[in-house]
């Protein structure tokens, strides 16, 4: 059964903007993105929204709904009372372009800073071999759809613009962890994660995990394991002593 939904949608650009009130006719079973599309079709033809798959897999329609970072296509209207006003704003960590669309290029710049996968030489028959048990930890991280909601909610950059140069953010700690745990990768990414990506700026308050639409345990399975790997290298005197005595190189310090 349909009803009239009260919405407040932020409209504007880099010069300014405001929350505007709308009433949109919606149907049972719809999501916030459906309501915004109807709004765009009937009342605000120039409303800017970034979207693509409508299935929670492309990571395009990230926004903040009632102040919480979420995918618009995965937020059901049935989560709210029909009498409730739903407020939709763009992600508030990134520079605004127009209406609900932000400039997320910060994330792509950070992605470029991560050295690519560098595998060991192949076996004599030209193949690389891995056991399933060795790669499945990283497979959780491959579920990332790059919606950047974790980046949006991370207070390190959300509340401190000046940290953006030194801090890669949870999405990329996920990538560092994925590569560092990869059985064939040859880089030592602990130093990079600590020094270049600002891993130690994270105070593990788990907001990235809370907002992840793919339910990746970013903090427990990626960030904290990377922090522990850095501890192996920098803050554990036993490991440090072992590396000095046995003159193991950085790659070998991580047990194979």
């Amino acid at each position: 059964m349909g009803y009239d939904l009260s919405m407040r949608v932020w409209r504007g650009n880099e010069d300014g903007g405001a929350l505007q009130d709308f009433t949109v006719s919606v149907e049972e079973g719809e999501v916030v993105l459906d309501a915004l599309h109807r709004l765009q079709a009937t009342q605000a033809g120039d409303l800017a929204i970034r979207w693509n798959c409508k299935a929670g897999k492309c990571g395009s329609c990230s926004a903040e709904i009632n102040g919480r970072p979420r995918l618009m296509c995965m937020t059901r209207l049935s989560e709210y009372e029909p009498s409730e006003t739903i407020t939709v704003t763009p992600m508030r960590t990134f520079p605004i372009i127009k209406d609900l669309v932000t400039d997320v290029s910060y994330n792509y710049e950070k992605a470029k800073e991560i050295p690519a996968f560098a595998p060991t030489p192949p076996d004599p028959d030209g193949k690389h071999r891995m056991m399933q048990v060795d790669v499945e930890r990283g497979q959780e991280f491959r579920k990332c759809i790059e919606c950047f909601l974790c980046q949006d909610t991370c207070h390190v950059v959300r509340d401190h613009e000046d940290n953006k140069s030194a801090f890669a953010g949870p999405r990329f700690f996920l990538r560092y962890a994925e590569l560092d745990m990869h059985p064939l990768d040859t880089h030592d990414r602990r130093q990079l994660a600590q020094a270049a990506a600002g891993l130690s700026m994270c105070n593990i308050t788990k907001c990235c995990t809370e907002v992840c639409p793919e339910h990746i345990k970013i903090t427990d399975n990626a960030i904290i394991p990377m922090k522990e790997r850095v501890v192996d290298r920098k803050y554990d005197p036993l490991v440090w002593l072992g590396s000095k005595i046995f003159r193991r190189d950085q790659r070998e310090e991580v047990e194979s």
Partner: peptide, 19 residues
């Protein structure tokens, strides 16, 4: 600075969370 910074969407309230 932060969410009230000049490049971000101009929203007066620091948070719009209602829960």
């Amino acid at each position: 600075t932060g969410v009230l910074g000049p490049e971000r969407a101009r929203i007066d309230k620091p948070t719009l969370r209602q829960d």
